[in-house]
């Protein structure tokens, strides 16, 4: 009797989030600051197929939808708009947990071209968790109207991930965005995200902690990131970490009981 099945862990996670995935489907998360046109990008990519739902136990709205590109099915998950992934609110925690535990095949961070600087904080934070990031520089029409020029190629070089200018409202740049998403999600393109380097003391402590975390949290995508949050004294991450562990412990106990009964 097998009570814990590691291989179905990720599907169980998606189910807990109310997502139904098909085996040949790529999962792509859509993150971004509030008011960057995230939902416009979402609707432009998915057409009219989206429906909204609630995250379990939270009053935060979430949307999901599917689209096909180059014969590949993609499930797009619209995450709540946040300034940060450091989980100071329920929205941020939902976004963070999905990116960390959901291991999406790609993460699109939608940014506002008219105030790009303030959006890059989130971009850097997402890149710290996963290298599979596409930056969508949206509202390019608005930026042009305000005489703001955005050099997407230079930004791509600096960040080490693809940056695609779009005007989602008019459908401009969406094909490029889909291409970039698919290339990344299917593994055809590798990124080399520029990571924030901390003080040597912090880096050393994080590395030490990360190796210890790795042993009992194989499902987490990035142990260095978890180590940094723990060093920061983030208590919400401890709760998130303990949930699956408790389930696992429950499984182990049940298994032992079953074995004892058989004897």
């Amino acid at each position: 009797m097998e009570l814990i099945d590691q291989s179905c862990g990720i599907n169980a996670f998606y189910e807990a989030f109310g997502l139904k995935t098909q085996p040949d489907q790529l999962v792509v998360a859509l993150a971004g600051n509030p008011n960057t046109g995230k939902s416009t990008v979402f609707n432009a990519l998915t057409g009219l197929k989206q429906h909204t739902g609630n995250w379990p136990g939270k009053t935060v709205l979430r949307a999901e939808g599917t689209f096909c590109h180059r014969n590949k099915k993609i499930l797009l998950v619209d995450l709540p708009g946040t300034y940060s992934l450091l989980a100071t609110s329920a929205d941020e925690q939902v976004a963070r947990d999905f990116i960390c535990l959901g291991r999406p095949d790609a993460i699109v961070v939608v940014t506002d071209a008219t105030c790009l600087e303030r959006n890059l904080n989130l971009v850097l934070q997402v890149m710290e968790i996963s290298p599979r990031v596409v930056v969508c520089i949206n509202l390019m029409d608005e930026a042009r109207r305000r005489k703001i020029k955005v050099d997407a190629a230079a930004l791509s070089r600096e960040l080490g991930v693809p940056c695609i200018p779009t005007t989602a409202r008019d459908g401009i740049g969406l094909k490029d965005l889909k291409d970039a998403i698919l290339d990344l999600a299917a593994g055809a393109v590798k990124t080399s995200p520029r990571l924030v380097t901390y003080e040597p003391d912090v880096e050393h402590a994080a590395a030490e902690l990360a190796t210890k975390i790795q042993a009992f949290l194989p499902q987490w995508v990035n142990h260095r990131w978890v180590a940094l949050r723990l060093l920061e004294g983030d208590t919400s991450i401890i709760e998130t970490l303990c949930d699956p562990l408790e389930e696992e412990l429950k499984g182990v106990v049940l298994k032992k009981e079953a074995a004892a009964w058989e004897r």
Binding site: Y83, S84, L86, T88, R118, N121
Partner: peptide, 11 residues
């Protein structure tokens, strides 16, 4: 604490 973190995140 959290408020500081949040203000920093706002830019």
């Amino acid at each position: 604490g959290l408020i500081r973190r949040h203000l920093l995140d706002l830019g």
